[in-house]
Write a protein that binds this DNA or RNA. Structure first.
Lengths: 109, 109
DNA sequence: CTAGCTATGTATAAAAA
DNA sequence: TTTTTTATACATAGCTA
């Protein structure tokens, strides 16, 4: 990109990696925004830094809507099955599942 | 970006919009890939064209893992409530409630 | 729609603040 | 870490095929 071509591999120098992360993250979110506006597309971006900090963009008012739509679009048989399995596994390892279920169903009727 | 600066608003000409979408979408996914590699970050991108076609990228082998992580990071009280409401709305208009319930539970853990 | 072609507009690496 | 500067590398709008 500038003053030197970049090799496509993890930047070893921690400081450089951090600076690059900051700049490119900003650039990525900006590009996502531009794509959504120029092309009237629905775009969602999720980024986690190495330290676990979250950065995200969503053309939708609620990124959850795009995520849900993704699920619906990507749910061919295999994907569905895989997701199901994941969900079931996730549930099995959670003790407060029943409480959550009740809370949820309650608000449903 | 070339031969003329672009106004940040929906491209009216359908053909131009389509071509731009194709080019920028590719560019966005590439940038996402580069960010993930260079900075060792976890990145997920979801894009829907106007026609509803899905394009996505995930630095993780399964984008679902990044989405889950997002939920965990973003679940302050308000966000939780908003998600709940959205899921409920989604469910009301969907007959496969069982599947939706499972998917929803995943967001807790 | 997909694929070059270039002139230009942008993004950004490196260095320094 | 974030920002600024500046030289370069990249991305891409408008065309063409």
């Amino acid at each position: 990109m500038a003053r030197g071509k970049v090799q496509l591999r993890r930047i070893e120098n921690a400081t450089s990696r951090q600076v690059t992360f900051s700049k490119r993250r900003t650039g990525l979110l900006k590009k996502a925004y531009e794509l959504s506006v120029l092309c009237d597309a629905e775009v969602a971006v999720i980024v986690f830094s190495q330290k676990g900090r979250l950065y995200n963009f969503s053309s939708n008012s609620e990124i959850q809507m795009t995520i849900d739509r993704y699920r619906r679009s990507a749910n061919d048989a295999d994907k569905y099955r895989a997701d199901m399995e994941q969900h079931i596994l996730a549930m099995r390892s959670n003790k407060s599942i029943f409480i959550q279920v009740l809370m949820f169903l309650q608000s449903f009727e």
